[in-house]
């Protein structure tokens, strides 16, 4: 490890610490806004460090940097404009959209880690397994969060949407996704199999959220938020980047706890929400005295 790599590690550690402190500050209303700013400071350190590190260590092609800057401007302007103009009552669906693009971004990073090394040699298991998991989870959150946002916005019916044999279709698509994922790993870098995983996971995300009632949608957004955290952590494993691993794991765990708390506050169980099809506010039948 050179002195430069050590410095990068220290800066990543500093940004991770700021994420933790920021999240901690957000637990109380009086310090919450400062907490968010602390977390944003950690983000600035992480991104600037990565840019300097990438320029020094690998350089890269100017077209790739142009693509990065163009994409970041496009996404950044869209994000900030939406965030500034959204009505306060429409915030949950916007958060859901931001969560969707985060999952999609993580899937794209993993996909690149899979494709970029080229066809020669094959890909190590330590990379291919997190890549497949990332594309799987990231794609589910991408389509799932968009459907959840549609339900919150009222574009898609807030009623649970189910159809006969839905569960069988779910299981079938899940099996296809898993088999293609295993094949992608065994074949040491088969892009076609990874595309199958991507498409199957996108379908799975839609199928997972459609049966959920509109009132339960915020809980599902929170759950998908935790999913995105895990997807980002997997992207970190794929490209060996500690900032992504720490921040992703942090959000994955925090999001899961938050999901449980939200469900509890609404007197709903997370399991019954995920299994879906129970409808909005309909009690789970197991506790009812039937005779």
């Amino acid at each position: 490890m050179t002195g430069f790599e050590f410095l990068v590690g220290v800066l990543y550690l500093a940004s991770a610490s700021l994420f933790v402190v920021g999240l901690h500050q957000m637990r109380a209303p009086s310090t919450a806004r400062t907490g968010n700013l602390i977390s944003a400071g950690g983000m600035v350190i992480a991104v600037v460090t990565t840019i300097v590190f990438s320029l020094v260590s690998s350089g890269g092609h100017w077209i790739a940097w142009a693509a990065l800057i163009g994409g970041a401007l496009l996404g950044g302007v869209f994000g900030v404009r939406q965030a500034r103009t959204v009505k306060m009552t429409d915030v949950p669906q916007l958060v859901s959209v931001f969560n969707a693009v985060g999952g999609g971004g993580a899937a794209a990073v993993a996909f690149a880690a899979f494709v970029l090394p080229g066809d020669a040699g094959g890909i190590e298991l330590t990379i291919s397994i997190p890549v497949v998991l990332d594309v799987l989870i990231g794609s589910i959150t991408f389509s799932g969060s968009l459907i959840a946002a549609g339900k919150l916005q009222g574009i898609i019916s807030g009623k649970p949407i189910t159809f006969p044999g839905a569960r069988a279709v779910n299981i079938l698509v899940a099996i296809v996704a898993l088999c293609a994922g295993v094949m992608a790993v065994i074949l040491r870098g088969n892009t076609l199999m990874l595309v199958v995983v991507l498409v199957a996971a996108l379908i799975l995300g839609v199928l997972m959220v459609l049966p959920i009632g509109g009132a339960d949608a915020p809980v599902i957004v929170s759950l998908l938020n935790a999913f995105t955290g895990l997807a980002v952590a997997m992207a970190g494993f794929a490209i060996n980047n500690q900032a992504l691993i720490i921040a992703g794991a942090l959000v994955g765990a925090a999001g899961t706890i938050l999901t449980l708390q939200m469900a509890k506050a609404m007197n709903r169980s997370v399991v019954s929400i995920i299994l879906g099809g129970f409808g909005t506010g309909e009690p789970v039948s197991s506790s009812g005295p039937s005779g």
Binding site: M26, S39, A108
Partner: peptide, 23 residues
């Protein structure tokens, strides 16, 4: 809190930077 942790997983943009340097 959901929104704040949602912003934190935006750190995946660092992954996009690394992707750019390798592409």
């Amino acid at each position: 809190m959901m929104s704040g942790s949602n912003a934190i997983h935006g750190v995946v943009i660092a992954g996009a930077v690394i992707t750019a340097s390798l592409a």
